[in-house]
Design a protein around this nucleic acid. Structure first.
Lengths: 379, 379
DNA sequence: ACTTCTCCTGAATCGGCGT
DNA sequence: AACGCCGATTCAGGAGAAG
């Protein structure tokens, strides 16, 4: 078991500690065997970067599904049952989500997956707990189980809810990586992925499938790639056969799993041990421009890459601007930054001067952003 | 206005009548102008076969949003979508759903559409009110608005919840019709349909869009075809520009619309009057496009078919590229899509990366397009 | 007549940093 | 905390103009 000190210390805030014996250091790359709420209670405040949770889909309701067809059920008792189970499920959900919220860093995010049986309870309780929904994602199953009786639409999807701790949080979203993964189109909220089967499906000692609802690694791959950075800590409070851990290890993320059932813990351990991390070069993703170091236009002027006195023009040569010695530009009697002048000329509220303005080189127009990239590469 | 006697008489059950002056006969094929709860209160118990509801989503938008090219997004800022709090929204939802339940026949079903802003509230309250969820349906928008800032996944779907009054109800589901509509495959819970635009979009006197959130007729067509019979009565308590009425008339169903805003009522009346029953000319778009699904290269990376870290080469082994975790590839210090990098290396304006790049398998080079075909076949 | 190009628009909870 | 500046950011489809 590896240990790393939690980045943020427990602050002893409003929420009472539900357990007196909190761990001093965050246990990572390990499975905590026990009840998810009790084990979460031992983890420090604001210590994990992401939580992925695949909670039970409300076992009480599933019980109803197994009733013999045509059996006469007293309606009043049934309603009472249902109320009882929904109430119980809600209480359970509120409790583990409260712990999850406490453990999550302020800029961390949480993902919860569910079906129509439970996801509306989960979504409402997330909102009630002041989580801020960023997206809901539809996992479209490429190969769902058909509806054998022909009584409904084929239940061919599950729903994931992605939340920040509040509307102001600065969460991680690797936009360019997601765009790259989707052939240079923005990644949408509907994901088509096969269900987990074949060799990926974990087996127990008897060769039977080890877990009834094992999630595909491709699903976790996309989630972890989108919303975490290498080295981030991911918590999965309903670990099962450890899909989250396996993918986290492969992608160079740290992980914590909580699982109550010993048989699943064993399967998960073996599975993750057999998973090899990608080497660092393979782990790289398209970097967001936002995270690149800033280059002031004046720096290019200073360095002579775009000398003072040279001309800038837009791609259609509608306007020509003069470069001043201080990195400001002049056009139409106005002077200011490449962005300000670009916006003013177009009558637009804003403008990215780096892509708007061009220089002529060998008869061809080239955006000054290309020069910036050259400048960055030279460093 | 046509009148038909309610099929099921009011039984004077537990719920107190919220209005003393209930109509004696059910008003059909007409718009009731007024508040949805007050107007529903005038309708008799157990009198309609289906309810389709498109309630306000409570979007909670902040400031203006601008497109990259400078245009301003025409947001939904209407008063009818503003609520003081989640609590207020929940109270409103409980109230109109209670009336809806009272009016609905015991074997009737209800559909409610929403987005992540409100659908979890709606789903929970439906379950709390003892409605029985039969399916949740994902409307995948073929042409959603992009995420202009690159901050989240493109919000490309809305969710519909379909409920019976309880788990024992004998609801209508036209299984064969749905299967026929889907090329003789069971209709799934994810529907790909374009948003409402072009000539279908209702205009006001000034030629502006009459309503900010008009739903496409293809969506209502599928719902009414699936869950009602000819002659059934469909109630839409948030009628807007009357899509439900127009499609109901086209399909030979009776309809009741409730709408508070006079401007929408006028548009809806004109629109429905101009709709010819059983003219299916406008319905040609309703079937899912069954064109071959596009496969992103990233999908092969995610699924492990071309693992991150593996090498690609062109047929003559002049270049070798490294596969990154997000499906981009790197070569010669550049990173980008299989197409972009292939084009850049050759100095060509474009390149089909699927045929340009190869993987080595058993000493033989194989274009990655072959792997794509294998992936498609597996689905 | 046919193609190509430009422009417009759609239920959207759509920045970050330094001063 | 508020303000101001930098500068990052879009997909599909329909309509109508232009070639």
């Amino acid at each position: 078991m590896n240990m790393i000190a939690p980045v943020t210390e427990s602050l002893g805030r409003s929420r009472p500690r539900t357990s007196p014996k909190k761990v001093k250091e965050l246990p990572v790359d390990t499975i905590l065997e026990g009840d998810c709420i009790a084990e979460m209670a031992r983890l420090p405040d604001k210590s994990v970067d992401m939580i992925f949770a695949d909670p039970p889909y409300n076992l009480q309701l599933q019980g109803d599904l197994f009733r013999p067809e045509g059996g006469r059920v007293d309606a009043v008792d049934d309603d009472w049952d249902k109320f009882e189970s929904l109430q119980t499920y809600d209480d359970f959900t509120r409790e583990w989500l409260a712990e999850a919220r406490r453990i999550l860093k302020d800029d961390g995010t949480i993902w919860v997956i569910g079906s129509y049986h439970n996801i509306y309870r989960v979504g409402s309780i997330l909102q009630d707990a002041d989580f801020w929904i960023l997206n809901d994602i539809v996992w479209r199953k490429a190969n769902p189980m058909p509806n054998f009786r022909g009584t409904r639409f084929t239940n061919a999807h599950e729903t994931l809810i992605w939340c920040a701790k509040d509307g102001q949080a600065k969460y991680t979203f690797n936009y360019r990586a997601m765009k790259a993964l989707n052939d240079d189109l923005q990644m949408r909220s509907d994901w088509l992925l096969p269900i987990c089967g074949g060799g990926e499906r974990a087996k127990d000692e008897n060769g039977e499938k080890a877990h009834p609802t094992q999630k595909p690694e491709s699903l976790l791959y996309r989630i972890l790639l989108a919303c975490t950075k290498p080295g981030d800590v991911v918590l999965d409070p309903f670990f099962g056969t450890g899909t989250t851990g396996a993918v986290a290890r492969r992608l160079g993320r740290k992980w914590i799993g909580i699982e109550r059932e010993r048989k699943y813990v064993k399967v998960a351990r073996n599975r993750i041990d057999a998973t090899l991390p990608l080497d660092e070069s393979a782990m790289t993703v398209m970097a967001d421009k936002r995270s690149a170091p800033r280059v002031a236009f004046g720096l290019l002027v200073e360095s002579g890459m775009v000398p003072a006195g040279s001309k800038l023009t837009d791609s259609k040569r509608r306007w020509t601007a003069n470069v001043n010695a201080d990195g400001s530009i002049s056009c139409d009697g106005q002077a200011g930054s490449i962005h300000k002048i670009g916006a003013a000329l177009q009558g637009a509220p804003s403008c990215n001067g780096w892509t708007f303005w061009h220089v002529e080189e060998a008869g061809k127009l080239q955006p000054i952003d290309a020069l910036r990239q050259k400048h960055l590469a030279a460093l």
